[in-house]
Design a binder for these strands. Structure first.
Lengths: 266, 266
DNA sequence: AGCTATTTGTTCGTATGTATA
DNA sequence: TTATACATACGAACAAATAGC
């Protein structure tokens, strides 16, 4: 008897209503939606239910919620392009590689983090045991040592941030008497294991932990775009990889060969 | 008196504890975590708070929650590769293009959706006004007509699904007397607007609406990997784009040129 | 097949804290 | 300072899915 639609949970219905409103252009980017209490009244429900619906849309990247201010339609920024598969394959983390050459700056956050040291010091490698991820990509046992380098870069105009990191199989750059200097990693590997080959991939994942703050991402609704360039020796064994982690709402990866309004070659 | 640290919300603390457990390998992929009631007791809190913490980790892609069964450590499937920037540029949605040639099958879901019609009918274009997204990519006014084609493909072995869709500026494939047949879209555009150029990009976004079910994605914690190939005429004007939407935990995009265990060329 | 216990899902009410204008 | 708006938290009740007997 005139039963309502059926299964759908109330918060899903409401999320659907709000999503339709948003996609139909009822709100302008940046515009505030009615408050939670108002919405609860409008839809004749409770605040927790409204909050669940809003959380859903925030998780879809459509809304952002600001404590004490309100809930807003999220503006979609233009995406910058990260170009992949381009030669020559420079070491983006070499101390001699200046981000300014690429139109980027070292991130403020990086400067703050490296309080006791000169900023450039950050580009020196950390010798550390490989985690499950790095080990899998490099085809080594988990725990085998790698040289880890990283830097946060920031796009001066948009202030968008990226994290560039590199993992090198430690054995290959540790001499018996003395380690290879990081600025010579690539040339050393080329001469000892070359000719080198490269493959580049892009994938997406959800960020967590410090990555969210380090890249200044919205905590929800923004995936991480990971562009990864793997260096292989002449026999196809992985030696190193450099990856760029970037907020998925502000960057895209492009195959080489087009004009490219941008930026960065991996 | 002996107040705890300070700022952090209780559910964040608990999420951090659980995340640490997961990343430290306290659980095996697929293994069930303690129930919500048990966790609430363990952490001396309420079930809603536990649920918030679990929802956070599910949103990070670490856990999956199954109604009536429990909460489980999410297994990370191997990623299949979508190759981009490769020639020749075939029309993946031409009726003459058989998914089986690429090692794929039309998705079961597509068959079900096309109940009244033959499955191949789905590859016929829908003439429809462009939405904000398509209009922006094609550089046309929102609402200007486009030819929309799509197909769901499924990888037979992994059962992973992708959505391939294409938007063509309608004016270019509508004759005065008769429309261009979809299997001749590409050759028609080549002859009227060629020589054609192409650019390919990949980006990430959060899925919503029917995409989640259509691609059989977990509702939370999985971004969408969108690989998009844009066709440009000799003057650089966009004519068409084909995009592949794929679950971000099961696919990655790769620049052409490597061996590739794979699949599909865009 | 059916029943039951377990587990997660939904919803409400309520109270209090914190950020912002 | 005050008002508004979102954030956190608890308790409770019932619904729905699942698994085991």
């Amino acid at each position: 008897m005139a039963d309502e639609d059926k299964a759908a949970a109330r918060w899903r219905e409401i999320a659907d209503f709000l999503r339709t409103d948003v996609l139909d252009g009822h709100y302008q980017p940046g515009q505030a939606l009615p408050g939670e209490a108002a919405l609860a009244h409008t839809y004749n429900t409770s605040r927790p239910t409204i909050r669940k619906a809003i959380a859903q849309l925030a998780g879809e990247g459509l809304l952002t919620v600001a404590h004490g201010r309100g809930t807003f339609l999220r503006a979609r920024p233009e995406r910058k392009v990260i170009i992949l598969g381009e030669r020559p394959h420079v070491d983006l983390l070499s101390p001699t590689n200046d981000p300014a050459d690429q139109g980027w700056a070292l991130s403020e956050r990086l400067r703050k983090l490296s309080d006791g040291e000169a900023p450039a010091e950050q580009l020196h490698p950390y010798w550390t045991p490989s985690g499950v991820d790095e080990a899998s990509v490099l085809g080594i046992r988990r725990g085998q040592m790698v040289a880890y380098r990283y830097a946060y870069w920031q796009h001066p105009k948009t202030r968008a941030r990226i994290l560039i990191s590199s993992y090198t199989v430690a054995d290959l750059v540790r001499g018996e008497s003395e380690d290879v200097a990081p600025e010579h990693f690539y040339s050393h590997l080329e001469s000892t294991r070359g000719p080198l080959r490269w493959t580049t991939t892009a994938h997406a994942a959800m960020p967590y932990g410090s990555a969210i703050e380090d890249l200044e991402m919205e905590a929800v609704g923004t995936p991480l775009l990971v562009t990864r360039r793997l260096m292989l020796d002449r026999e196809g064994r992985p030696l190193e990889f450099t990856q760029i982690e970037a907020p998925g709402d502000r960057f895209e990866a492009a195959g080489g060969g087009d004009d490219g309004h941008v930026a960065l070659r991996l």
